[in-house]
Design a protein around this nucleic acid. Structure first.
Lengths: 145, 145
DNA sequence: CAAAACCCCGGTGGAGAACCGGGGTATACT
DNA sequence: AGTATACCCCGGTTCTCCACCGGGGTTTTG
C-alpha cells in the first residue's frame, strides 16, 4: 500500500501545524516547507486542497499563514487522506462497474481490505501522531544519557 | 486503495483456473481471456509472472495451457497480489528512508494500515472466492424462480 | 513436418505524480 | 496611499509507469 508524496507531505505539514497549535499563530508555507524539507510551491498546492477540505484555515497578507481548522485530536488521518487523494481513495466503485460476478466478488474482497486499512487510519488523530513523535524524541534523549 | 487492472485480471484468471481445477485439463490463455474479457497479450504476461511466482504451471505446445500449481484452498489472495505487484506491495521501506521522526511516525501508521489490509487478503483463498461466486449465482437463480 | 500455444523481449501511448512559474489579490504596516 | 508580505489561482512541464501490443523463438502433439 503506497504512501504517496502528496499524503506524506500533507501529514507532515499538519503535524507541524499541530506542534504549533498551542501558540495560535499562523505558520507560513515557507516555514513548514523548510522544517520538513517539502518543495514549497507543491506544499502551497496541498495546503490549498486542505483548506478547501476544511482541515486548515488560512490568513492572507503580511503575518499570514495557516492554522489547523480544528483541534488536532479531532482530525483523523483518514479524513486527511480522503481530502488529499480525493474521495476516490475510498469509493472507486463508481468508475469500475464489475461486469461479471467474478469481478464483483473480487471487488468486494478488495473493498473489505480497504476498509480494514481505513479503519486503522481513522483511529489515529493528528494528536496521536504528535504524541508518538514526542515519546520517540524522549526515547532518543534517554539513549544519550 | 486502488485495485489495479493487473491484480484484477490475475485474480479473474486464477478464478477461471479454480473453476476448471477438478477437470485437471490445462486452460489456454485465449480461453481465459475470452471468458473474462481480458486482453490476451496482457494476460500472457501476467500468467508468466504467476508461473515464475509458483502459483500456476504451464504446458507448452498443442493442447497446452495453464493449471493451478496448488489446490485452490491453498492459494490466498495476498500471495497473488504480492506476486503480481511485486514484494514492494508489502515492504517499500527500503526505498523510503524516513529522514525525520515525523516521517517515521507517519510511515509506521501507514504500515499498520497496510498490514490490516494484507491480513484481510491473506484470509481469502481462491476457493473462498469461487464459493462466494457460486452462492452469488445461486442467489440469482432463486430470483428467477 | 505443421500447427498450436506458451515464451521472451522490447516497444508505445497516455495518464497522472511530482513539482514549478507567473501573475493576481488580500492584509498589515508605515 | 504605497509597499511588502504571503496566500490564491491557473496552467504548465517532465518523467514514470500502467495498460497493452507486436514480432520472433521454442516446445509439444499429432
Amino acid at each position: 500500500m503506497e504512501l504517496s508524496c502528496k499524503t506524506e507531505y500533507a501529514l507532515l505539514a499538519l503535524l507541524e501545524l499541530t506542534n504549533h497549535y498551542s501558540s495560535g499563530e499562523p505558520l507560513q508555507i515557507r516555514q513548514i516547507a523548510a522544517e520538513q524539507n517539502i518543495p514549497d510551491r507543491y506544499l502551497e498546492q496541498l495546503l490549498a486542497t486542505l483548506r478547501r477540505g476544511g482541515l486548515v484555515r488560512s490568513q492572507r497578507g503580511a503575518k499570514g499563514g495557516y492554522v489547523l481548522a480544528r483541534e488536532p485530536w479531532k482530525i483523523n488521518v483518514l479524513e486527511v487522506v480522503n481530502c488529499i487523494e480525493g474521495q476516490d481513495a475510498q469509493a472507486t466503485d463508481a468508475g469500475r462497474e464489475a461486469k461479471t460476478v467474478e469481478g464483483m466478488v473480487i471487488w468486494e474482497v478488495w473493498q473489505e481490505a480497504g476498509q480494514a486499512a481505513d479503519s486503522v487510519l481513522q483511529r489515529q488523530t493528528l494528536q496521536d501522531l504528535a504524541d508518538k513523535r514526542e515519546s520517540r524524541c524522549r526515547l532518543d534523549i534517554m539513549y544519550y544519557i
